[in-house]
Computed example of a mutant assay.
Amino acid sequence: MAGSSFVDYVKIFCRSGNGGAGSRHFRREKFEPKGGPDGGDGGRGGHVILRGNQNYWTLIHLKYQRHVIAGHGGSGSRSRSSGASGEDKTIEVPLGTVAKDAETGEVLFEITTHGEERIVAQGGRGGLGNVNFKSSTHQAPRYAQPGEPSVEVPVVLELKVLADVGLVGFPNAGKSTLLAAVSAAKPEIADYPFTTLIPNLGIVEYRDYKSFVMADIPGIIEGAHEGKGIGLRFLRHIERNSILLFMVPSDSEDIRKEYQILISELQQFNPELLDKKRLLAISKTDFLDDELQGELEKDLPDVPYVFISSVTGYGIAQLKDMIWKELETSMLER
C-alpha cells in the first residue's frame, strides 16, 4: 500500500434532501365538481448514509469528494398521490471508521461491521397533503404541510485500523521486519528511522488453519503525544487492537526504560490503552547467547515476553503461540 494512497482522515460536508410539500388539491370530475380534498403527501428527503465495506482499507476515495448532497423529496399531487422520496447518498467506508461532528468533535458513531449502515444526515420529512386534515366539521381544508428542511452536517471521518495485534515500538525496533517475516505484507524496511510512514496490515497464519491480523504502526518516539515525530497521527490506530505487542531490540541500552517510555506515551494519549493485553518481544537476538539472554531477563518488565529474531526465525513460533493464547483468552472474556 503506497504511502500516498493511505488516507485515514477526511472532512466532508453532508446535506440531506428537503422533504416534499403536501398537495392542496381538490378532486374535480365531470359529475362530481365538489369531490373534496385529495392532495397527497410529499416524499421524504434523501438521507446521507455511511455503510461499512470490508473491501475498503483507506478513505482515499473520499479525499476529493468534499460535498455529499442527497436528493429532495417530490411534492404530493392529486388523487392522494405521494411524492417520490429523494435519492439517498451512500458513502462506502472501511471498517473501523469513526464519524465525528466537525464543529464540536462529538463522536456520532462508529462503523465496525460489513454492511452496517448509519444515517449521518437525516432527510427532511415530507409534508402531509390536505386529505389528512379532512374531518366531519372541516370537509374542505385548503392547506397542507410544507416539507421539513434539509440537514447540513460537517463530518470528520477517522479511520482506526482494525487488527488483532498492534506492534508498538521505537523506530528501527524491527516491527516491519517481523511483519514481513510472519505474513505476506511487504512493508518498507531500511536501516534508518521512520521507514514506516503508514500502518501496514498482515494476516499471520497459525496452525490448524487459524490466523490473526497484525498491524505495524509507525514508530513512536518520546513526546509523540505532544506531536513529536509522526507517532501522534497514528496512535489512534492502536485503540482498535486487541493486543499490544511491544517491541524493544536486544541491543537497547535499557529495555525496561524503553518499555516504560512507550507505556507513558500511550497513557498520555489515551489512558484506556493500558487496559489492553500487553506482550513484549525482545527483537534482534541473532547474536545473543544464552548467558546474555539470562542477564537481560533479570531486568525485564513484568509482562509476558519472548526473545525473537525475525531474520533467523528464532522464537517466532513461540511468539505466535503466546499471541494466540492471549487472543483466545480475550475472546472468552467478551
Rank of each mutant, 00 (worst) to 15 (best):
A173N: 04
P193E: 10
G39K: 04
S283T: 15
I238H: 00
R207L: 13
Y206E: 06
D286C: 08
I230E: 04
P193V: 13
G169M: 03
N18I: 12
A144R: 02
I91K: 01
V168I: 14
A224I: 05
E291F: 15
G219D: 02
V311S: 11
Q267M: 12
V107G: 00
A2L: 11
Q268N: 13
I261W: 02
P94G: 06
H67V: 11
E326P: 01
G294W: 08
A317K: 13
T195I: 07
P33F: 07
F212C: 06
R125I: 13
C14G: 03
R256L: 14
A281V: 03
G71Y: 13
G294K: 04
G86L: 04
I69F: 06
V93Q: 02
F287I: 12
A84E: 10
I198C: 00
G126E: 04
R142T: 06
L292F: 11
L235D: 01
V155A: 01
K257A: 11
T97D: 08
G127D: 05
V151P: 02
I111Y: 03
F13K: 12
S310W: 05
S250D: 05
V248I: 15
L235K: 03
G45Q: 06
T112M: 12
R256Y: 12
L197Q: 15
G3K: 10
R240A: 14
G3F: 11
T329Y: 08
E226G: 00
F31K: 09
L157V: 09
H47A: 05
Q260L: 14
Q54P: 00
T90Y: 01
K63P: 00
R51C: 10
L296Q: 02
A102W: 08
D38I: 04
G96A: 06
N200Y: 14
I221K: 06
S283F: 03
G19F: 10
E29G: 06
L300I: 04
I60G: 02
E87Q: 13
E116K: 12
F194S: 05
E222H: 12
E253L: 12
R15W: 00
R118T: 10
G223F: 08
D275R: 10
L280C: 05
S264Y: 13
D88A: 05
P249I: 10
P94H: 08
P94Y: 09
R78D: 12
E106V: 13
H67S: 09
